[in-house]
Design a protein around this nucleic acid. Structure first.
Lengths: 349, 349
DNA sequence: TAGGACTGATTAAACGATTAATCAGGCAGC
DNA sequence: GCTGCCTGATTAATCGTTTAATCAGTCCTA
């Protein structure tokens, strides 16, 4: 047992320099009136002692914990790493820590998870809601990252525009019949992406949508999507609304002996981790998560500093939508009119 | 401006019931001596008022923040969602919040990220180190999840045993020549997995290892692995050390017209999100993250409650290794002696 | 009936930082 | 020389909780 507490505090610095605690506090925060030389001396001594302010003490006094919560309905989402990384980066740049909360995919426990965060005293939260769940504003400022078309959205990628990028890309390649593959018709993000694709079609092009959740209700989880049949029907491009579905489509097509991109094209969304390394690498649309997270966090920080403690507010940002970027890789290629309706085993070249 | 602070505190409950603050505190925590009826009345009233204790006040007094840090060197790791979910679940069951820290893959900034956590006053940390980086014990208890073979490991999946499971499975299917595919020779986890595979081989079987990072140093990121050539050389099974590499191998083989599992088998590790839904679905080995996280967090909580504040300790748990579970899916199949050395386009059936 | 043990409650002192209010001088203006 | 202002520092209160120390009774025992 050495001394009482290992970390030096304001009091130790103060007595050690023969000044008052308040002066030390003022010197370090640059707030009160302290002479320049004294500020210098105090700063020096504090650094020397390795002083780190106690968050607990500060939080108690100021009513601010310096921590924000990150809420995702389903943390198992493959986008989660990118989101968490971007939010953590932006938050730590703004001087905040990030506390995670998970409701394990259950919409009912989402409220509970949010409550845990509030009880932990977070100053605000970044919420990425599931499907169309509205966030009943909690007991603190909330920034929502969803899609521009949902009410209450703070900032997000422009999924609609991303869809248009895909459509234009496929149109440029000469594709006429496109199958859009989504996994959840309730998702507002996926609906916007699909809407964007449809809006980007040129006259004469047509699109149909395949919702995997419907299919799996009968066929069971992981069932085949029947894409070979779709190829025979004349579809030459498969635009998945997420790279996970794109991957599923790609492998199913490959297994059926259909060559991507020679026979048909496959595109995705999100530029997930595997997209650059599968064969053929996936053409996809990337959202600029760093920018989105930066806007969300700084808008949140703004609102926090303006609002009084424990007040529930929906945060708004000046620029609501961030453009998505088309990444063209190998999985999309020109539609050769003569090669439609291939049968298994017929290879090109 | 209503009253001073929105949340009720001990003082409000106390005056409202005409008792002292200490009595309320004792009643709610069940610690001091309070009559049963009074306890009942206080609890009731507290619930009625919606009292939530201030973490800041408690932290200041007790020196414990009730928060643990989760440190990963690379948060973009596709395993991260599962890890974060499991840790968050275990932590919140133990009454802890989880603060994340990211060093963006940079080993140098890992120390900085850990520092941020310490400054935020975490009571302890769960660290999943990169490669063979040793954790210089920080200013708080640290639980390390790596692999049983590394010194200082607290608890982890038994990667070696997982490798053996794969080897035995492939041996049972009749495979003789196995190509192990890893992406990083420095990774102790991957080395253990590879070692386990080798140890599980039967007499007459042989294995070679392909490290992707070496290959990419020349070929560039995402370059082909040249697996078709390996098939011609007589390899019939490709045992990747992670599902990401397995996916890469699978798609490359499929693109080359080699059928999985008819011609060759592919296996992975970790049962990542896409493994069940690609075609063919991936045979893999799953680690029981919930159990591992549970052990790590409860061992950490134990150590925290035993140690004095800000003391750096490496946490140990009673059971260090958790068995991995083989998941047999479609990507692995029997090795048919007559069908070896297939050329592109030669389909079976 | 005095002293001790026990019960059920209160008092008061922390924990560490912030900040409004105060104070001691120095200096200028009248 | 008195008043007022400005600078540079201090005093002291406060945030909400925990907990050791204390206190007022009640009951039991010698």
């Amino acid at each position: 047992m050495a001394s009482s507490r290992p970390g030096p505090n304001l009091s130790r610095i103060a007595t050690s320099l023969g000044v008052s605690i308040a002066t030390v506090s003022n010197a370090l925060s640059g707030k009160g009136r302290v002479s320049d030389q004294l500020v210098e001396r105090i700063r020096e001594h504090a650094a020397e002692l390795g002083y780190v302010p106690s968050q607990a003490g500060r939080a108690l006094r100021t009513g601010r914990s310096g921590v924000i919560g990150l809420v995702l309905p389903d943390i198992a989402n493959p986008l989660f790493p990118k989101i968490a990384q971007a939010i953590e980066f932006a938050a730590s740049a703004a001087g905040y820590g990030v506390l995670i909360a998970d409701s394990r995919g259950d919409a009912a426990t989402q409220a509970e998870a949010i409550n845990r965060l509030v009880e932990r005293g977070v100053d605000g939260m970044v919420v990425i809601p599931r499907r169309a769940t509205r966030i009943s504003s909690a007991a603190c400022p909330v920034a929502v990252i969803d899609t521009p078309s949902t009410p209450g959205n703070t900032v997000s990628a422009d999924h609609w525009q991303g869809g248009r990028e895909i459509a234009v890309h496929l149109a440029d390649l000469g594709h006429q019949r496109i199958l859009i593959i989504g996994n959840n018709q309730e998702s507002s993000v996926q609906n916007d992406r699909a809407g964007g694709i449809r809006a980007g079609l040129r006259p004469g092009m047509q699109a149909e949508t395949l919702w995997i959740d419907k299919l799996e209700r009968d066929g069971g989880s992981g069932c085949p999507l029947g894409l070979a049949e779709r190829v025979r029907q004349g579809f030459t491009a498969f635009a998945a609304l997420s790279d996970l579905q794109a991957l599923r489509a790609l492998t199913e097509l490959q297994q059926a002996g259909i060559n991507v991109p020679a026979d048909v094209s496959v595109t995705g969304f999100d530029d997930l981790i595997w997209s650059p390394v599968v064969t053929p690498s996936l053409t996809t649309v990337r959202m600029d998560m760093d920018t989105i997270a930066g806007i969300a966090v700084s808008a949140l920080a703004d609102t926090i500093s303006k609002s009084r403690a424990r007040e529930g507010v929906l945060v708004t940002a000046e620029s609501e939508r961030v453009a998505m970027q088309l990444i063209v890789r190998q999985s999309s290629g020109p539609c050769e009119p003569g090669t439609k309706n291939l049968r298994d085993g017929e290879q090109i070249r």
